[in-house]
Design a protein around this nucleic acid. Structure first.
Length: 555
RNA sequence: GUCCCCGUAGCUCAGUUGGAUAGAGCGCAGGAUUCCUAAUCCUGAGGCCGCAGGUUCGAAUCCUGCCGGGGACGCCA
């Protein structure tokens, strides 16, 4: 509907032939919050005024005259207000046809084809398989997942990928830590290395190994036993990670193993070797202080970085370059990484490497997530304990449930720090915003359940009976859904959907309290009101679906 | 020292590609249920949009500087 208004404006502006207006000039059509500003409003005259130097109100007058001359039946009235806004008051039949459209589209209302099947890869979580997921990973997981849902809804072909960092020193540390614990169980005086892993799960893994049939001899061939411990712990922990993520309703298409996909057999082979060779071919590598450096400063980053260490092993940075080259070669036109804010310096250095290799770094976008602070009753809960244990995702899920966890983690813009209030998330009361939205949906389901008994069914026949003033507010909120989805996709911001749903739920609760729906006096009015309620439900379900949150029929 | 994010109501935060009288939730004070789910609704109080300059018809929004909080800064991942 907004597009129709915009079309009218553009045609009218064209007919007036203002001088000095670029054809692609951007005019904005918005739905004003204040109803005296009309159903739609545009800043067109202000934009033109600032380009031509004319008085915006005079410009507005000419545009209004041009539109009025064409006598559109759906426009009831035009106003010029403030510095030169043009406000549209439209015929209510337009709203009625939009309501019919919502139910016709159902689960597809708000979806679009703007992605036109472009391939996009979203890499997120990518936690090291050296421990359980802690709660800090949860924000990344939930936001990444929701971004994927939103992009799919907008017509992108989305691949969800978890990059498994199963190569390198961290994995060796894991093996040695578990082996040490195993050795202690066998009565050897042995400490877990200082920079190893110290959580309780390490001894639990050791105990599992001891009870398994393949348990290596201790003491015995130590390197072999350490390797066994590493592999055992790795596969076990990766399974635990998958389990936790599924409990959070986060699923991946690819579990991309660094070890097998990137490293191949040693640093001179596989994708690591190829990438190193490509960088050397363009003379972007130099030897210094016995190490080899990528000259990132030549490609827009502040400084150079080591890619091959003194000991000849590749750094994480090099395998990361190789990994991203691989993403490009898999044909993705949009590459999205969801990273923690502590990785921010990696963004420019990774981009500089992409640029150096002649790839288009503008298709690589990194969504940096600010940190989460856990709070209980207003007091910060430390995320990690001295023992090396963390507050795990699993604990929080068990305590507050998936819906509340997701809702709270999605509520804030990702570049804002987030306080996760455990006591609030757990509350099943009016203070908790999760239930506010779900409750609106449950109420509507209840109405639909009761409708048969009341002899009412949702019908589009009598939508004209909806009172223009009373129900219009809800319709206008419903109509905004597609643009909210668009905006959330464009800016990778699921929180926009959260805010929107709260507003929609508020609109419905207000209406519900004020208006009888089923027993509204006559069956025709009731059928129209029920129809409207059904539309609200469609949008709430679609919106919650984008957030991965359930829409229960009863509460 | 350099770079990134943030600073908006008592608290937690939206709004930031410049637009009309800056919003929400929580908290606080009061009120609403003979009737479709009160996990709801209504009313009220509460603001130098961190500070100071600049850009212009117009700045919470853009630019510069400063202050405060968080994070990152070569052989860890």
């Amino acid at each position: 509907m907004k597009n129709e208004i915009l079309k009218v404006i553009k045609e009218s502006v064209d007919s007036l032939a203002f001088s000095g207006i670029p054809t692609e000039a951007e005019f904005e059509v918005s739905v004003p919050k204040r109803k005296e500003f009309g159903d739609f409003s545009t800043n067109t005259a202000l934009v033109i005024g600032s380009m031509t130097g004319e008085n915006p109100r005079e410009v507005a007058k000419r545009i209004v005259a041009a539109i009025e001359k064409r006598q559109f039946t759906f426009i009831e009235r035009l106003d010029i207000a403030g510095p030169g806004f043009i406000n549209f008051f439209v015929n209510k039949t337009l709203f009625e046809s939009e309501l019919r459209e919502i139910l016709r589209l159902g689960g597809q209302y708000g979806a679009s084809r703007e992605g036109s099947g472009q391939k996009v890869i979203v890499e997120f979580v990518s936690a090291n398989p050296t421990g359980y997921l802690h709660f800090g990973h949860a924000r990344n997981a939930v936001v990444g997942d929701s971004v994927c849902r939103i992009l799919s809804f907008c017509g992108y072909e989305v691949t969800r990928e978890f990059y498994v960092n199963d190569a390198g020193r961290q994995m060796d540390m894991l093996g040695e830590s578990v082996y040490s614990a195993l050795a202690r169980l066998s009565g050897l005086a042995r400490e877990i290395p200082e920079d190893g892993y110290h959580g309780e799960y390490i001894s639990e893994l050791a105990e599992e190994i001891r009870e398994s049939e393949e348990c290596p001899q201790v003491p015995g061939d130590e390197p072999e036993a350490v390797e066994f411990c590493r592999e055992f712990a790795y596969s076990k922990l990766l399974e635990e990670i998958k389990t936790d993520l599924l409990d959070l309703r986060v699923d991946f298409d690819n579990w991309y193993s660094e070890r097998t996909e990137i490293h191949g057999r040693g640093p001179e082979k596989g994708k690591i070797g190829e990438t190193l060779a490509s960088l050397e071919d363009i003379d972007a590598v130099e030897e210094k202080e016995e190490a080899r450096w990528f000259k990132a400063s030549l490609y827009g980053d502040g400084k150079d970085w080591v890619i091959i260490k003194k000991d000849g092993a590749p750094t994480y940075f090099l395998s990361d370059i190789a990994y991203h080259v691989d993403k490009y070669s898999r044909g993705f036109s949009w590459i999205i990484n969801v990273w923690g804010a502590d990785h921010h310096s990696h963004v420019s250095r990774l981009k500089s490497s992409i640029k150096a290799l002649g790839l288009d770094e503008s298709s690589l976008q990194v969504l940096l997530m600010q940190f989460v602070r856990l709070v209980r009753d207003g007091v910060e809960v430390p995320m990690s304990k001295r023992t090396g244990d963390f507050v795990t995702l699993r604990e929080v899920l068990r305590e507050v449930g998936c819906d509340a966890t997701r809702f709270f983690l999605l509520m804030r813009s990702s570049d804002s720090h987030l306080d996760f209030d455990l006591s609030l998330a757990k509350k099943e009361s009016s203070e908790n915003p999760v239930y506010y939205v779900q409750y609106a949906n449950a109420r509507i389901s209840s109405l639909l359940r009761n409708s048969a008994e009341a002899g009412v069914s949702a019908s589009e026949e009598h939508l004209g009976l909806l009172s223009y003033d009373e129900e219009r507010n809800i319709v206008k909120i419903l109509l905004r859904f597609p643009e909210v989805v668009h905006s959330a996709a464009e800016s990778l911001s699921p929180h926009k959907v959260v805010y929107y749903l709260q507003e929609l739920a508020a609109g419905f609760h207000f209406y519900y309290n004020r208006t009888r729906i089923l027993d509204s006096g006559d069956a025709d009015t009731a059928s129209a009101r029920l129809y409207l309620a059904r539309c609200v439900q469609v949008v709430i379900e679609n919106g919650l679906g984008l957030l991965g949150i359930n829409a229960p029929r009863s509460m």
